[in-house]
Computed example of a mutant assay.
Amino acid sequence: MPVCLKTLEISKNLITLLLFMKTSGMTMNNVKNPIDLNSIQPLCKRLRLPTMFQSLATLCESPSMLEMTHLEVVHEILEAEICRRDENALKRRLKDAHIRHQDATMADIDFKIPRGLNKPQVMTLGNCDWIRNHQNCIITGKTGCGKTYVAGALANAACRQGFTVRFVRVPRFLKEFSAQHALDRGFERELRNLRRIDLLVLDDWGIGQMDAVNRSDLLEIIEDRCGVGSVLVTSVLPVKAWAEYIKDATYADSILDRLVRNAHRIEMIGESMRMQKRYGALNTKEVD
Rank of each mutant, 00 (worst) to 15 (best):
D108C: 07
N88L: 12
D110G: 00
I35N: 03
A57V: 11
E87W: 08
A80P: 08
M106L: 11
N33K: 09
C83A: 08
I15F: 09
F20T: 03
R115I: 03
K112T: 01
I35R: 08
K12G: 14
H101E: 15
I40Q: 09
L71Y: 02
L47G: 02
V74M: 12
A97C: 14
N33W: 07
H70I: 12
L59H: 06
L71W: 08
A104T: 02
R92K: 15
S24H: 10
F53Q: 05
S24Y: 15
R92Y: 10
R85D: 02
D110R: 13
V73F: 02
L17Y: 00
H101D: 10
L19Y: 04
E79P: 07
S64C: 03
S62Y: 08
K112R: 11
E9F: 12
A57R: 14
T23P: 04
H70C: 05
L71H: 04
E72T: 07
K95Y: 10
A89N: 11
E9K: 14
Q54D: 14
Q102N: 15
K12L: 13
T105E: 10
L49T: 01
H98K: 14
P63G: 00
S39K: 14
T58W: 01
M26D: 05
S39M: 13
L59E: 03
N88Q: 06
D108V: 04
P114D: 03
R115E: 09
L66Q: 06
K22P: 05
H98N: 13
A57D: 14
C83H: 05
E81H: 09
M106C: 07
L78C: 10
F20G: 05
P42N: 15
P50A: 00
F53G: 02
Q102A: 15
I77F: 09
A104P: 02
E79Q: 08
I113M: 00
N33G: 08
M68L: 13
P50N: 01
I77H: 05
E67W: 09
K22V: 04
Q102V: 15
G25T: 07
L47F: 04
V31F: 07
T16P: 07
I35L: 06
L59C: 02
S24P: 09
C60H: 06
N38I: 03
L94G: 01
N29P: 04
R92P: 12
T58I: 02
T105S: 15
K32S: 13
T16W: 05
V73M: 09
P34A: 09
I15R: 11
C60N: 10
E76Y: 12
M68A: 04
K91P: 12
I15K: 11
P50S: 01
A57G: 12
N29A: 15
A97I: 12
R115N: 01
T51Q: 09
V73I: 14
H98A: 14
A107R: 06
A57M: 12
M65A: 03
Q41P: 02
A57I: 07
